[in-house]
Design a binder for these strands. Structure first.
Lengths: 341, 341
DNA sequence: GTTAGCACTCTCGTTTGTTGAGTGCTAACC
DNA sequence: GGTTAGCACTCAACAAACGAGAGTGCTAAC
C-alpha cells in the first residue's frame, strides 16, 4: 500500500511533531509549522483518510492525531532516512574505545554509555559466549599452601581460571611436571574431542598423583561445561524516566522490571539478523509488558559469534537517529574487534 | 536526654506504625492498636511533649504525627533491637554462596540479590581493590600470530592479564625463555620494590629481545598502575519504586541518578567503621539529594582491605531488620572469605 | 478538489463544597 | 497532679460543577 506524496508529507509531519512533543498534533499546527501549501481543512480530510488506513489514531474526538504503530512501521519501512553518527561522534567513540582497549569489560561499558548518551535512550549490549575450539595453554599455579589455580587459555584468547584444593604435601616441582603432562596432552586439542571418557582415561593414566589431577580435571570439566552465559550490559536506564509516556509509575515499574532481570530482557530482544538494523515497534514485541516500547537492534561479530547492540525506548522514538546511531556503532565495533583481537 | 517509659512506648508505637503504613499516625490509632493503658487524650499530651523535644513532627495541624529524623535517631541509638537473620535464611545464603564459590563475581552478585530480597531495600556491595604485594607468577602465552597474552598471578591469587603485540618473527621457544627470565626476576618480588628504574635496567639487560620485552614491561607497568577501581554492585533498585515517598518522579530521578552513577554513590556511602553497623539517617547524608534516604552499612574484610555492604532505602526504614540483616550478611561474608580464600 | 465557517466534543485546570480524621483546649474526675 | 471525656476547630483529600480552549467533522460555497 503506497501513499501519495501529500499523504506522506502529512504523515511525516505528524510523526516528527509527535515524536518531539509527545502530544497529539492538530491540523492547524502542522500546516503552520511545516509549510504544507494547503489549508487545515484539507489536511483534516487527508488525516481522516490516513486514520481509515490505520496509520493514525485519535486519543479522543476533540484531540489531534497521533501516529499508530502501523504509521510508525510504514514510516520506518518506506520513508525513513537514517541519521548516522557525524564524524566528530565517530572519532569520539573511536578514541574512547582506544583508551579502554586493554580491558574488554571497559570497552563494552564505554560503548553502552556512548550509545545511551548520544541517542538519549536506554542502550543494551549482549556479548555472546565466545565458544572456543582449542586449548592453547594450561597452567597450574600454586597460590598458597593447599590452594592452586588452574589457568586455561583458549585459542580465541579467552582466559579462564578456577581455584582448586591440592594436598599440602605436593611440591611445586611436582606441579610443574603435572603441568607439562597436561600441556602435552591438551595442546591443540579440539574442545569437541574432549569427552568425559578421555578425561577418565587420563585420570587412570596419571593415577599416581590422583588428588591433584582430579582437582584439575574437575576444574577443567567445570570450565568447559559452564562456558558462561551471554553477558548483558544495560546503560542509561535513567533516560527512561524522561519519557512522558512512562510518568505512570506502574508502567515504569514494568519496564524497569524487564530491564533489571537479565533473563527477561534476553527473552525480549530479537535475534540479530545479518547486517541489517532490526526495528521492533510496540506490540510487535514478544512480551506483553513491553508493548509500549520499541527496540532498535543490530548484530556485530565477535570470534564467529554474533553479539547484539541497540537501544530501547518508547514507541514514540526518533527511529531515524536511533537506527543510524546503532548502525554506526555496530560498524565501529566490528572494525575495532577486527583490528585488535 | 532520656525518655520515661511511657514516652518511649509511644515513640516506638508511632515509629512502628509509621514505618508500616507511611501515613501520619494519630493518637486514637496507637491507643487502639498497641494497647497502651491510657486514653487518646493522654497520648496526645505526650505526643505534644515529644514534638517539643523534636522527636515527632506534624505534616499539618489536623494530621497525626510522624517521627522526625531525630526521633528515628533516638530510637536507633537507644531503643532498637536488631532482628538478625533467622537460621533458615542463614543457611540459604550459605548455600547460595557455596554454589557460586568458583566465580567471585557471582558471589558478590548473589549476596547483593539476597540482601535486597530479604530486606526489600536496594542493596550495595563495594569490593575494594585488593592490593597485592608480590608477583607470584608471570606467563607469556602466544595467542595468534603477532599477539600474545601476559598473565600475572599475584600472591593474593588475583589473576590479571593484558594483550600485547609481538613481532611475528618471535618463536614460541623464545617466548618460553623470556618467560623464565621474567619469573626468575619477579618471583617473590615485592610490588613496592618494582620501580620504573628497575624496569628500565631490566629493559637494558634484555636489550636483544627488545620489542617483546618492551611489550611485556609496558603491560606489567600498566597492570600495576591501574590496579582497578573499587567495584560497586547494586541490586534491587526496583524496590525503591515501591516506597510511597518516591512516587514523585523528580525525587525518584534524583535517587536513581545517584544509584546509577558509581562515583556519586561512592561519595555518598560512609566509610566502614570497624565492626559496627553504621546507620545514616536522612539529612545526615553527605549529599543533599540523598536527604530523604537512609543507609545501613557494615564493613567486611578481604585480604586486609575493607569492603562495604549494606542497604539503602527511605528514612522510613525498618532499621531493626536492615541492621540485623546487614550485620548477619557481613559475618557470613567474613566466614566464607576466611574459609575459601 | 479545496476551503471557510460553524456547531459540537472532549480534556484540562480551577473552583467550590463536603467529608472525616485528628488535634488542642477546657472542665470534670480520681 | 495526672488523666480523661467532650467539643470546637483545622486542614487535606475527594468529588462535583464549570468554563476555556483546542480540535474535529460536516456543510456549503468557491
Amino acid at each position: 500500500m503506497t501513499l501519495d506524496e501529500r499523504k506522506k508529507r502529512i504523515l511525516e509531519s505528524i510523526i516528527k511533531d509527535y515524536v518531539e512533543s509527545a502530544e497529539p498534533v492538530g491540523s492547524r499546527a502542522i500546516v503552520k509549522k511545516h509549510d504544507l501549501r494547503v489549508s487545515a481543512a484539507t489536511v483534516r480530510n487527508e488525516m481522516a483518510d490516513l486514520e481509515d488506513m490505520g496509520y493514525l489514531e485519535q486519543p479522543h474526538t476533540s484531540a489531534g492525531r497521533i501516529p499508530s504503530e502501523s504509521g510508525f512501521r510504514y514510516y520506518v519501512d518506506c520513508m525513513m532516512e537514517r541519521e548516522n553518527l557525524v564524524e566528530d561522534e565517530v572519532e569520539l567513540l573511536q578514541k574512547i574505545l582506544k583508551d579502554n582497549l586493554q580491558d574488554w569489560d571497559e570497552v563494552i561499558q564505554s560503548i553502552g554509555n556512548f550509545l545511551s548518551q548520544v541517542t538519549r535512550y536506554t542502550s543494551f549490549i549482549i556479548v555472546p559466549t565466545v565458544k572456543f575450539d582449542e586449548f592453547k595453554y594450561i597452567q597450574l599455579v600454586p597460590v598458597e599452601k593447599g590452594k592452586a589455580m588452574v589457568i586455561v587459555v583458549t585459542d580465541t584468547g579467552v582466559l579462564m581460571h578456577r581455584r582448586i584444593d591440592i594436598p599440602q604435601s605436593v611440591e611445586t616441582k611436582e606441579l610443574q611436571s603435572i603441568n607439562e603432562v597436561f600441556n602435552r596432552l591438551f595442546a591443540r586439542k579440539k574442545f569437541a574431542e574432549l569427552r568425559k571418557t578421555d578425561l577418565q582415561s587420563l585420570r587412570d593414566e596419571l593415577n599416581q598423583r590422583k588428588k591433584v589431577i582430579d582437582g584439575i580435571l574437575e576444574a577443567i570439566e567445570n570450565l568447559t561445561e559452564n562456558t558462561g552465559e551471554e553477558k548483558v550490559v544495560i546503560s542509561g536506564i535513567l533516560n527512561m524516566l524522561n519519557e512522558p509516556e512512562f510518568k505512570n509509575l506502574d508502567k515504569l515499574k514494568k519496564i524497569l522490571a524487564i530491564l533489571e532481570e537479565e533473563s527477561v530482557l534476553k527473552a525480549l530482544l530479537p535475534e540479530a539478523t545479518g547486517d541489517t538494523v532490526d526495528i521492533t515497534i510496540g506490540r510487535e514485541n514478544r512480551l506483553d509488558d513491553a508493548k509500549e516500547m520499541s527496540i532498535v537492534l543490530a548484530g556485530y561479530k565477535i570470534f564467529g559469534e554474533v553479539g547484539r547492540v541497540g537501544v530501547i525506548g518508547p514507541v514514540r522514538m526518533e527511529y531515524w537517529k536511533a537506527a543510524g546511531t546503532v548502525d554506526s556503532v555496530r560498524t565501529i565495533i566490528d572494525e575495532v574487534l577486527k583490528k585488535h583481537y
